[in-house]
Amino acid sequence: MGEKKDLVREKLELTLGRTLIDRLEEGESELRLGADEALTIFLLPSQKYKNKKLTVWLEGRGSRVEILGALLGGGEEESKISIRVIHKGRETSAYIHLRTVLFGQSRSLFSGLIRIEKDAIGSGSLLEDRVLVLGEAARAESVPSLEIEANEVKASHAATVGRIDEEQLFYLESRGVSRATAVRMIVEGFFEPVLRRLSRKDLVAQIRGELWADALKQYLPDS
């Protein structure tokens, strides 16, 4: 299993496998997973990420990868994330789920590729890319591709780009919550599905802390 230099800041052993927290530094990372290896990668925003490429090769039979992301863009930031998962071994599985909130005039470009090669019989792959646009001038581009060369498989992807549901806001405001707090609650809720994938509570708390205390504060007015 070869990891390139910049991928990992922190490694934590989990019962199922390992979790890497990746603060999206620039650059290209490649990972190869052997038989029955399982890995969770959690992508978090950093101040300076612009162009990130991550490729995971599921080579060994039964190898599994989970790539989760809670990402933010603000100001005039432009982020480019490219994730490729190549299923080579039998019965390999991948779950990719990114959630991005865009403020200001930020721009996010996401390209994802799931490739299931001929021999990867019995494999399954799912990719989800959800973008919540808060900045009036923010822009999003998403290209989630599938290349499926085997038939005993299941692969799917879903992508959405949208803004805050006015009805949700209205509901919260009607309960006496200020607009700013309501927006914040909705944004926090937006990230929950990826946070909930992590089984370790301390890790979730740590990520939440980082997101809310540092990153989100810049963009959301205090309520």
Partner: peptide, 11 residues
């Protein structure tokens, strides 16, 4: 930003 876009694919 004021839009609603959905994409789904299954193989």
């Amino acid at each position: 930003s004021q839009v609603q876009v959905e994409h789904e694919a299954t193989v």
